[in-house]
Design a protein around this nucleic acid. Structure first.
Length: 307
DNA sequence: TTCCGGTGAT
DNA sequence: ATCACCGGAA
């Protein structure tokens, strides 16, 4: 007796075929769906993790225009890559650093060739389980099932037995649904479903969801989604000021700490509550992360983006 | 004002 | 296990 299939509909093959047909009949068009280059796919995935897709399209073209290959990116100054991220408002600039580092790993540790398996890809900086499976699938048709929050939401609604579990076995269910050897089309399709038909507010009929005849949520009307942890507000947060630091250094090249301060917050005064000591600790963190380079000149701290 | 999310650090 | 990380859009 296997321990998984009993949680799936008896006609798994029909479920698979319905989703693939739905996807292939009509889906949104994105340029990274037209390439099998693992570098181009990786860039699109890292950008897509944090930014609305319509904004990613423009940034993706511009990034590849600037650094067309992993080799080119590996040779770039980190300051240029982080600066690009900031100029295009791509969020978490740590990801620019990871992407840069991953390109160097491909060059230095993999003879310039991308790993072709999820496990190999996951060794790259900034590439976790999700991105590894996405790149393996879309570049090499060689991935396992991707599980991101969109996929979790789809599975949680379609298979209501997941509601009872303390830790729902999303990866297990997703792996069993995936038709072997078809990870490229399958992972595209199930994420398209989560984005187009099964978003936070479901659009089952409007989007012609192919799973309506099997879906527990469509059957019962309970479209509950898995809980997502709440976040502290961005306004006034430390990461807001980090973002301002990177933006200012990208604009001015380098700045002494007391000239940087007023550009970070209007109430900056060197000896105030949010003064030199506060900014110094922010900069030390950014320096420890390899984002910012600190030098001392005439007793004053000078900051600039790490090359 | 709240929402959104994959990864790495600890 | 929990937390920090970004900024546009809803």
């Amino acid at each position: 007796m296997e321990d998984g299939p009993d949680t799936l509909p008896a006609d798994v093959d029909a479920v698979r075929a319905a989703l693939i047909e739905w996807y292939e009949t009509d889906h949104r068009s994105y340029p990274w769906r037209e390439t099998e280059d693992p570098y181009e796919i990786l860039v699109s995935e890292v950008m897509s993790q944090q930014t609305q897709l319509d904004r990613v399209v423009e940034a993706w073209h511009a990034f590849l225009d600037e650094w067309p290959t992993a080799e080119a990116l590996a040779e770039a100054d980190r300051a240029a890559v982080v600066g690009f991220w900031t100029d295009h408002s791509l969020g978490y600039n740590n990801r620019a650093k990871y992407l840069h580092e991953a390109a160097r790993q491909v060059r230095d540790e993999h003879d310039g060739e991308f790993p072709r398996t999820p496990d190999g890809l996951q060794e790259l900086m900034g590439v976790g389980p999700y991105t590894a499976n996405a790149v393996a699938s879309f570049a090499f048709n060689n991935g396992d099932a991707v599980v991101d929050t969109n996929v979790k939401r789809v599975l949680y609604r379609a298979f209501s037995e997941l509601h009872d579990k303390e830790e729902p076995p999303y990866q297990h269910i997703a792996d069993e649904l995936l038709p072997k050897g078809r990870s490229r089309v399958w992972n595209n399709a199930i994420m398209e479903l989560g984005a187009v038909a099964c978003g936070k507010t479901p659009r089952c009929d409007e989007a012609g969801c192919p799973w309506r005849e099997w879906c527990d949520a469509y059957d019962t009307g309970d479209f509950t989604a898995p809980d997502v942890p709440t976040q502290p507000s961005f306004e006034g947060s430390r990461r807001q000021f980090r973002g301002r630091v990177v933006r200012a250094l990208n604009e001015y090249g380098e700045l002494p700490i007391d000239e940087l301060g007023p550009r970070i917050r209007v109430d900056y005064s060197p000896d105030g509550e949010y003064g030199r000591a506060w900014l110094r600790s922010l900069l030390e963190d950014l320096s420890d992360e390899g984002m910012v380079q600190l030098t001392e000149r005439d007793g004053a701290v000078i900051a600039r983006l790490q090359r």
